[in-house]
């Protein structure tokens, strides 16, 4: 229990540093998640409409799936240098695939009969996308966003290795100077942050699912 007391004392004494790292961690994760959605959703919808796009993107993602998150982070470094921007690029690479895959599957699996009926009612393609396909696809897309969120919160911890800042810095420093309390200063908030992201993002997913099934 002593180490927990030490960890809390450290946070109290270094609250500005702690909050700054927390802010960077959350900012990095949210920015990467946002970019991942901006890339993944349009590509996913396009893949659902085009066989070529789907086969190319599924092949690329199949390869990307076996590349460890740590490798993505370190591999970006020789080309972009150290820092926040490099970490953001790497995290976006990790965030986009789950969003893309789920968007692709969700739009692909919209019942063609429903779309057919909408065409028969005289809806334009844009209207069908906005009012028919997107509401039906949304729950599965949001599951992908939640998966991506878990990935970026976790990998933002690894960003400390490439000078990206965030809570991982306490963990890296804690291990380097053999300070168990410092390890906990990084690890416990990161674990809670991951659970928080997971919990918060489950809400819109749940709502979207209820709307579809009702």
């Amino acid at each position: 229990m002593g180490v927990f007391v030490d960890a809390v004392r450290y946070i109290a004494a270094n609250s500005d540093r702690f909050l700054e790292a927390l802010g960077i961690h959350v900012g990095l994760a949210l920015a990467a998640l946002g970019l991942g959605v901006l890339i993944g959703v349009p590509l996913g919808i396009w893949a659902a409409r085009s066989r070529i796009v789907s086969s190319v993107s599924l092949n690329v993602l199949g390869v990307l799936r076996v590349v460890p998150s740590l490798a993505v982070l370190v591999l970006v470094f020789p080309y972009l240098g150290l820092g926040f921007r490099t970490a953001l690029v790497a995290l976006t690479v990790l965030a986009a695939p789950p969003v893309l895959i789920n968007t692709y599957v969700a739009y692909r699996d919209v019942d063609p009969a429903v779309v057919e009926a909408a065409v028969g009612m005289g809806m334009t393609r844009g209207q069908i996308l906005r009012w028919i396909e997107t509401p039906l696809a949304l729950p599965v897309v949001l599951t992908g966003v939640r998966t991506a969120a878990g990935e970026v919160v976790a990998s933002a911890t690894l960003a400390a290795f490439i000078g990206g800042g965030g809570m991982g810095e306490f963990i890296v420093n804690g291990l380097a100077v053999n300070n168990v309390a410092l390890l906990l200063v990084g690890a416990v908030p990161v674990a809670l942050l991951a659970l928080l992201f997971e919990g918060v993002l489950a809400v819109p997913e749940h709502l979207a699912r209820r709307r579809v099934t009702s």
């Binding site: 911890t157 168990v180 906990l184 990161v190 674990a191 659970l195």
Partner: peptide, 17 residues
């Protein structure tokens, strides 16, 4: 599921003590 959600680096760090 909670354990599964904890980032690997944090899980490693929590076990080191």
């Amino acid at each position: 599921g909670v354990v599964y959600t904890i980032p690997s680096m944090a899980l490693f760090a929590l076990l080191i003590p």
